[in-house]
Amino acid sequence: MKSAKRDLLVLTKKVSINEKELQLEVEKLHDLLFHVESMDNFCIANEIIDLNKYKIIENPIKIRRLISSNKLQPFQFINNKN
C-alpha cells in the first residue's frame, strides 16, 4: 500500500504512548482510510444533481464516469447523501 501524505491527529486515553504503539496506530488508520476513501465508496455515498436536465444521478457507474471526466458541466453538483 502506498503511504498517504496526510496529517493525522491521534488522541489516546493513555498519558504516555511509546513510538511503536503510535506507529502501529497510524498504520491502522492509514489502512482503514485507504479502504474507506475508495472511488467505489465515494460513488455510493454521493449523487450528482443535474439542473440542466432536472435529474438526480444515483447510479455509481454514471457518477464515476462523470467525475472521471475533466470537469462537470455548469449546474451539475456533487451532493453527499449523508
Rank of each mutant, 00 (worst) to 15 (best):
I67E: 02
D31T: 08
L22Y: 08
A4L: 14
E58K: 14
L51M: 07
L11Q: 06
L32N: 05
N79P: 00
K20I: 10
I67W: 01
N79W: 06
I17T: 10
I57C: 03
E19F: 09
D40K: 14
K81P: 00
K81C: 00
L33I: 12
Q73P: 01
D31L: 04
K28E: 01
Y54H: 05
N80D: 10
K28S: 04
A45F: 05
C43K: 09
F34S: 12
N52T: 13
L72D: 13
L29V: 09
S68F: 07
Q73M: 13
L66E: 11
E27H: 13
I44F: 06
I17M: 13
D50W: 09
K14S: 14
V26P: 05
K2E: 15
K53A: 12
H35L: 10
Q23H: 09
E27T: 07
S3N: 10
K28F: 02
R6E: 14
L33T: 11
V36M: 15
L32P: 05
M39A: 12
I56P: 00
L66I: 14
L9M: 08
M1A: 08
P74E: 14
Y54E: 08
C43L: 09
K13E: 06
L11K: 15
N59E: 14
I44R: 15
I49T: 04
L33G: 07
F75S: 04
K20D: 09
L33C: 10
S69K: 13
I44A: 00
L29Q: 11
M1R: 11
I48Q: 00
K20H: 04
R64F: 08
K2D: 06
V15Y: 04
E37M: 14
A4Y: 09
R64T: 04
L66C: 02
D31P: 02
N18F: 10
D31V: 03
Q23I: 11
V15D: 11
K55L: 02
S16M: 11
Q23G: 00
E47R: 06
K14R: 15
I17W: 05
N52C: 07
L8M: 13
I61Q: 07
K81A: 00
L9H: 05
D50A: 12
N41G: 14
I17Y: 05
K53Y: 07
N70I: 13
